[in-house]
Write a protein that binds this DNA or RNA. Structure first.
Length: 293
DNA sequence: CGGCTTTGACCGGCGC
DNA sequence: GCGCCGGTCAAAGCCG
């Protein structure tokens, strides 16, 4: 898992700040003082690392607990589903939409109407892609060739949703839906359906049919692994990162982004590979010289 | 000229 | 049965 793209500033910014002004004196008698400073730094970073590990562990524990509660609730709901509270159709829709983002992992979702489709339903995965809010195109570059076959304005989002098919291989069953997030206009929500039955085109398309490529610069997403959609955690991280960066500039928008971020964090903690990667990135960062500023 | 995007029409599923 | 809604089709026009 390549996390190079990720600006992993997990509160270890102290690494980047030189502890004292690099005056000429420091340069001339570096050894003992430098060693002590480095040792102190190392201690601080070790503490930080420990704290981060604990955070990850508790996040994972919380997630497991929540998952248990969720399973309990859904099994209860399936019991009384036949009768009363049908809530609103809107709420139902939203509930269905939530299941989209967690694709295959739920087996206990038997109360859901999607169940009927599930057995033959191709894999669904949802990604958040940061882009320029002023960009009106709905192009998400992920290394594959897509052909747009439709666009629609949906009820819950004033921004149009674009429908794409993989045009690299005519028999490729993969479809993609791209829609700007209603809450965060700088975000695209890309939903991939199915899996590519071919490898990723080695060269981005050029020449004819490349008219849409002009828009693809807006994407800030690393290319996905061959024959697979982008790794969700990358995009989701980028999403949460974008939230963090905007915090200082704009008033906090409380409702959905926060829940989204929580949902994303929860799904991340479910991924042991991600935990390893974060741990590796954090510890690796400690022993690297700070990047030039 | 061939492949692309655009966009209105059409279709099927679902809730009331 | 009707209306709403999301997804798809297909004709027309655009572009390299």
């Amino acid at each position: 898992m390549d996390l190079k793209w990720l600006n992993l500033d997990l509160n270890i910014s102290s690494l980047h700040d030189p502890p004292a002004k690099p005056g000429p004196a420091d340069i001339e008698r570096p050894d003992l003082k430098q060693v002590k400073e480095l040792e102190a730094e190392l201690g601080r970073v070790s503490d930080e690392n420990k704290r981060l590990k604990e955070m990850l562990a508790s996040m994972a524990a919380n997630y497991s607990a929540l998952q248990g509660q969720m399973a309990e609730l859904t099994s209860k709901a399936s019991d009384d589903d036949g009768g009363g509270d049908a809530s609103s159709s809107e709420a139902k829709r939203k509930r269905l939409a939530v299941t989209d983002s967690s694709t295959s992992s739920e087996g206990e979702d038997s109360s859901c109407k999607r169940v009927k489709e599930d057995p033959c339903k191709p894999l669904l995965s949802k990604f958040y892609v940061r882009t320029d809010p002023s960009d009106s195109s709905l192009v998400v570059k992920d290394g594959y060739q897509w052909r747009k076959y439709g666009q629609k304005v949906t009820r819950d989002n004033p921004c149009p949703r674009a429908y794409f098919r993989c045009s690299f291989a005519p028999s490729c069953p993969v479809k993609k839906k791209v829609q700007r997030s209603a809450e965060e206009t700088s975000l695209f929500v890309a939903t991939y359906e199915g899996e590519h039955n071919h490898s990723k085109p080695s060269q981005p398309q050029s020449g004819r049919g490349a008219s849409s490529l002009a828009h693809e610069r807006t994407l800030h997403l690393p290319p996905p692994a061959a024959a697979a959609p982008p790794v969700p955690s990358k995009v989701m991280l980028e999403f949460s990162q974008s939230r963090r960066m905007q915090k200082s500039e704009s008033p906090p928008e409380a409702e959905l982004p926060r829940s989204l971020v929580e949902q994303m964090a929860a799904s991340l903690t479910n991924d042991p590979a991600f935990k390893d990667a974060v741990a590796a990135a954090v510890s690796g960062r400690m022993f690297q010289p700070p990047p030039p500023m």
